[in-house]
Nucleic acid binder design. Sequence first.
DNA 1: ATTGTCTTCGT
DNA 2: CGAAGACAA
Length: 478
Amino acid sequence: MKKTIVWFRKDLRLHDNPALWEAARQGVIIPVFIWSEQEEREYATSETARWWLHHSLIALEKELKSHGLTLILRKGNSFEQLMSICKQTKADAIFFSKRYEPSIINRDCIIATKLLSCVSEVRSFPSNLLFTPEKLLNQKNEPYKIFTSFWKRTMRESVNYPLPIPTNIISYNEALPHLQIEELGLLTNNHWHDKFHEYWEPGEKGAMSKWKEFTNEGLNRYAIESDIPFVQSVSLLSSHLVWGDISVRAIWHAANRLRDDESKEYRQSSIDAFLRQLIWREFAYHQLLHFPKIINNPLRGNFIEFPWRNHDEELSKWQKGLTGYPFVDAGMRELWETGVIHNRVRMVVASFLVKHLLISWVDGSEWFQQTLVDFDVANNAMGWQWVAGSGIDTSPYFRIFNPILQSQKFDPHGLYIRKWIPELAQLPTKYIHEPWKAPTDLLLETGIVLGDTYPHPIIDHSLARIRALEAYELIKNT
DNA sequence: ATTGTCTTCGT
DNA sequence: CGAAGACAA
């Protein structure tokens, strides 16, 4: 009977895992995870990412155990570890899921070739995306540059049906040297992350319960309320998708099946809006694949000339949620506390850094990488370049989010602000979006001292707007 | 994570 | 002529 190593990567699940499924069909399964910090480089080295990974691995180990499988954990050079496992087990094949980060694609390609000296079969399977990104090209055989075009194209493609959890699992019974999860050294002594347990349950089970919750609640109202950060009618699946705790194809088909669910009367528009979000993720990977420099270089050449301000003090105020704009600050504090920001607010805080403070999106991107529990290279790079206007498909350069109007529109009762900025909680809704306009006696009454308990606005909105337009005007035709 | 209009291509 | 994609504002 054939023995297959299943090399787990960003597919930490048993359902819809083609590598696992095919391995099960062939015979004996040897599940392996290797933590190769050196090879991850810019992709997953932040503490938050590792916090998630650590706990997702615990969940995976448990799931595998319940199917009689022991997860072999190793750390170090992927190739060397795989070779050593091959030799120790005399495995016949190695199966794994495709990854799409540029340097990882390279690495995998080299490893796969070299491994053929030891096993007779090395196969990689698509599992993290709905479509095969390299196959989606326009009529000119070029990558898509505009989201709507890309989106229309994907509507003509079909998504593979998800595979079930294999039932005929045969485990490898001989003992193999392996590490305990703690020995991978993913967690630091920094207890900042402990609070994340209040919000997140990494792993397949946690992902399933988020999905269930979402289909019971948020999905019905998605088209109307997904932009209201206080309500959280969003799926909260982003970080599960990063590590493949849940299959995006499974989500796709499950959401589509709900169209016909008569007990719930899911609004078609809500389902469409949600699926559209998944296509944004695809589009991000499409861009990363074809324009790998998107990670830290502007895609539009003229942005090299952009007069970014280097201003550590203002950057730090933005990071801490001390800009004096309540909606922006609420978002940045939500990020620090929970490891995510609601998508609407994410756009506003990003726009604020780039357009109001004229600080390079790269600084913002790095902060997001360090703090987001759902950090995803492709999504993050696309998002920041969209906001900055330096990407291929971009926000109009003159579109400068007004942080006060956004606040009034998407947090009309100030509930989101009050949740994250308790020092402003007593302020009446009329002034919650712009506390500097509150009359002195009201501030006294509510115990707010501007410049002390809560900062003055870091910059006046209309001045910032004019300054940004001038800066963008400079590079417009270069 | 826009919208309206123009260009191009294939019929 | 319509559809798809590019592009300016």
